[in-house]
Amino acid sequence: MQLKVIDHPCVWDRFVMGNPDAAFTHLFGWRRVIASVYQHKPVYLAAVEKGSIAALVPLFRFSRPFYPPEYISLPFFDHAGIVGKSQKAGQFLLEKAWKTLDCKNSAGLNVRQDTNFDLSGLTLTGRRPKIFTEKTGLTIALAPDPRQMLAAFPAKLRSQINKGIKNGLTWDIGGAKLLPAFYKVFARNMRDLGSPVHALCFFKTIFSVFPGQALICVIYHRGIPAAGGFVFRFKNRLVNPWASSLRQFRSLNTNMLLYWQMIRLACNLNLDIFDMGRSSKDASTFRFKQQWGPQQTPLSWYTWAGDRHRSPGETLSISPWQKLPLGVANIAGPRVRKHISL
């Protein structure tokens, strides 16, 4: 078995599309999105056996001011760890990556994994991983027909969805044309939460790199964007990495209608799964998503600390950020967000 750097998207994505455990974040295009928008250096590695890929992992050399670089798979997302044909191939890949990238002399290596690979027993130059398990993935199995899907929800949930419609809410689903409306809601909500916002060009680049796979759903109240969700079609599922709503409209059930329209879209696309993204256990977003009856998938983030490891104490909640004028927050947000790997 050999370690190889893969620079050919077709070779990489052929393995990703053929592996049932691969996530949308494993697609080669995220290399271009993250590198071009936030300038983190990609290192896409594969374990190759007899000329074929046996395992792969997308890594980025993640830089922060005043801190040593750290190798992360994959910054800004829930999980994009090892995808492979065997535990042996996956362990070989990380052992070789650790040595080849000289992770020992950096801040270390962070691999965000779902349940497909247990890396808790893997030691790298004598180091055992620190394991973060506070986040979980949430998915909903879809019915073939939206009416059947709606009927399967509890009566209270259906009533909340219908109240949103009775309250005069409307919706639109489309591509990049809806990005200004989505971003208006998303940026305002992030500021209100005290979180630096992703750059607008981050989302524009996603549409450019993944034409036809990214979509937006916007909920309106009297023509004003009140809630929005960004979804990504991958294999048999529709994934929702980002969703936001404005506080002043939430009493109108904007969130309920937004999630129903995204689920309805997934049904109409004949997909099998609606992926609600990650949530911290017992957080308010987790409790909201629990209403829809999702299946939980534990996420494990493994960190092997290097000799230069210093924890930056990352958080997306910065209390003083809430007090910034929206225009200032939108300008400063992406410059801060690029250095927060969460």
Rank of each mutant, 00 (worst) to 15 (best):
I161K: 14
S280F: 02
G228E: 07
S244T: 07
F249K: 13
G223L: 07
H198P: 09
D172I: 03
F288C: 03
C267Y: 07
S284L: 00
K166Q: 13
I224F: 07
Y183M: 10
V209H: 06
R264A: 11
L179D: 13
K163M: 07
N240I: 04
G168D: 04
G229W: 03
R250D: 09
V231L: 10
N253Q: 15
R147K: 15
R247H: 13
M149G: 00
A152C: 10
L257G: 11
M262V: 09
L169K: 11
R247P: 06
R147N: 00
S245W: 03
I263T: 14
N240G: 08
G194W: 05
G175I: 03
G168P: 08
A181S: 12
W171T: 12
I165G: 12
F249I: 02
N270Q: 14
I161F: 11
L157K: 14
G174A: 05
F274Q: 00
R278A: 05
T205R: 03
K156S: 15
I273V: 15
R287E: 09
I216D: 01
L215W: 03
W260T: 08
T170A: 00
L178V: 04
L193T: 10
S208C: 04
I206G: 12
A151F: 01
A176T: 13
N240W: 03
F210N: 11
Q291L: 10
Y183K: 12
S245Q: 07
F182M: 08
R191T: 02
V185P: 04
P180I: 04
I216Q: 01
Q248P: 03
Q290G: 01
G223D: 09
P146H: 08
L169Q: 08
R147W: 00
G194N: 09
L246S: 12
S244E: 02
